[in-house]
């Protein structure tokens, strides 16, 4: 474990994030620690309200941190993120219907991060990134509403990739899409990771997606990290905790006898 932490690109140490005050305080993230070595695909799974997205948002600098530390390449992250941070770490959001500006064309959406970071070769970079995500050039001057869900998510991924980051934070990148489109986006993400040596932090509620995409998976429940699972080459995990086992069973479909035995983990 210490080995991991020395070379980890992202390390989370005793992270705690609370919302609200007094009696109503919710421990959204409660003493969570993990470390991600370079070029790994790391999954965060859990049911809604388990704190998986909050961790990702905290990494991106979108949520506050109450206790603990977030480290990038061994350096603690400051509350105010620098431009250099966003050059290195980019995020893709869940819903491509909501995360793209409705009145900006694809061209403008892709040019904006380049302008912020002061890149000169805007033209070449837009062409290159559209090729990378397999988006035909004819879509360049269209608006998001003229694209399908899968094409929009490609634009969102292209916007994240255009700065050539090393780390992608993926917040349920396929849960708003149909299964057939999901397959295309997952294939794209896998191909890009291999081509560009990226590190992924993937949040999902779908155990099948995470075990297909990731080498290591953290299972979250009510803010706590229940279990860290290693995914073997066949995409199988061997959970030990009761909660994770139940989650595994539940994703295998409807079975009356099994459901009777479910325990509410509220």
């Amino acid at each position: 474990m210490t080995d991991h932490q020395e070379q980890a690109v992202i390390a989370v140490k005793d992270l705690a994030i609370y919302f609200g005050r007094g009696e109503h305080q919710v421990k959204a993230v409660d003493q969570v620690s993990f470390a991600i070595p370079p070029r790994q695909s790391f999954g965060l799974v859990g049911e809604s309200g388990s704190g998986k997205s909050t961790i990702l948002r905290a990494l991106a600098g979108l949520d506050h941190v109450d206790q603990g530390q977030l480290l990038l390449d061994g350096e603690p992250l400051q509350i105010k993120r620098t431009k250099a941070f966003y050059k290195k770490v980019q995020m893709v959001f869940q819903d491509p219907y909501a995360s793209l500006h409705p009145r900006h064309t694809v061209d403008k959406i892709l040019a904006e991060p380049l302008a912020i970071h002061g890149f000169k070769d805007i033209e070449q970079r837009i062409i290159k990134v559209m090729d990378q995500v397999a988006l035909p050039h004819k879509f360049r001057f269209r608006y998001p509403h003229q694209l399908s869900g899968g094409q929009r998510q490609r634009v969102a991924i292209a916007r994240a990739l255009i700065l050539e980051p090393e780390i992608l934070l993926l917040d349920e990148p396929t849960s708003a899409l149909d299964v057939s489109i999901q397959a295309e986006v997952l294939n794209l993400l896998n191909r890009l990771r291999a081509e560009l040596s990226l590190t992924y932090v993937l949040v999902s509620h779908d155990l099948a997606v995470v075990s297909y995409m990731c080498e290591r998976v953290a299972v979250m429940q009510q803010g706590k990290l229940v279990e860290l699972l290693q995914v073997d080459q066949d995409g199988k995990t061997y959970p030990k905790q009761a909660y994770t086992k139940q989650l595994n069973l539940a994703s295998q479909g409807y079975d009356r006898a099994r459901i009777e035995q479910f325990i509410d983990h509220d």
Partner: peptide, 9 residues
């Protein structure tokens, strides 16, 4: 096209 039907990798 479901992930569970594919071999990892």
């Amino acid at each position: 096209c479901l992930p569970s039907h594919a071999t990892k990798g």
